[in-house]
Amino acid sequence: MAHIQIENLSITYQSPQDGKPFVAVDSVNLTIDQGEFVTIVGSSGCGKSSMLMAIDGLIAKEGRVLVNGREVNAPGPERAMVFQEFALMPWRSVLQNVLFGLELQRWKGGDRIKRARHYVNLVGLSGFEDYYPHQLSGGMRQRVGIARALAVDPEILLMDEPFGALDAQTRDVMGDELLKIWDREKKTALFVTHSIDEAIFLGDRVVVMQKGPGRIKVVIKIDFPRPRAVELRDEPEFATYRRRIRDLLSTEVQELQRIKEDSHG
């Protein structure tokens, strides 16, 4: 059953310099099933993050986003977001940050602190409950971000380049651990990234986006069984997927080059 349905989603920004409208996302249609892990990959500026923000209801949009068949226009408890720059409250400890979402949603489902501790443990931060964000590494901070999102028990996890600010090694480890957590929690996941490897490794489907304006170029189904392990990245099939997506993204670069030259010539 369709869990998220995106119909004709367009996003237009006012350019801060000249106030002219700028189309970031243009008539995107996409359906995501219950429990599916969908990754969105594209070069910077293709509107992939804007799309995620619109699905969460954080920015204005045209078109419709339906969750469980109901249209959503504002953030709701069935969706939770993990942010690229972590967006942790610097004056709150790890535990208090995980409690943040529960407080805001006036969580009634029993002991909040117990629940927060559970998710701190789940992301591997037990012992760090009383640390403040500035005392943690980037990877640890994003673990807090993930725990904060999971703690409010959403049906859908929206992740906006969550590992974009991390170094390559940490990034692979986090991806691996995210999958382990996802296997246990069974959320529908929408994951934005600019790393092709990350998109293939994590996703049931990879949405390849092009830019200028942001549109879906193609959706690729990834036929790897789950659970997936790190070694998957060395498989020949993985390389095939990688090459295909890379070609799709680089033809885009070539096309843009051509358009530019045309307009200059």
Binding site: P16, G57, L58, I59, A60, K61, N73, A74, P75
Partner: peptide, 15 residues
Amino acid sequence: SAPKAGRDVSSFSAD
């Protein structure tokens, strides 16, 4: 009240 979608952060932006 709950902030309206899309308006929220914009009330802090430049006019």
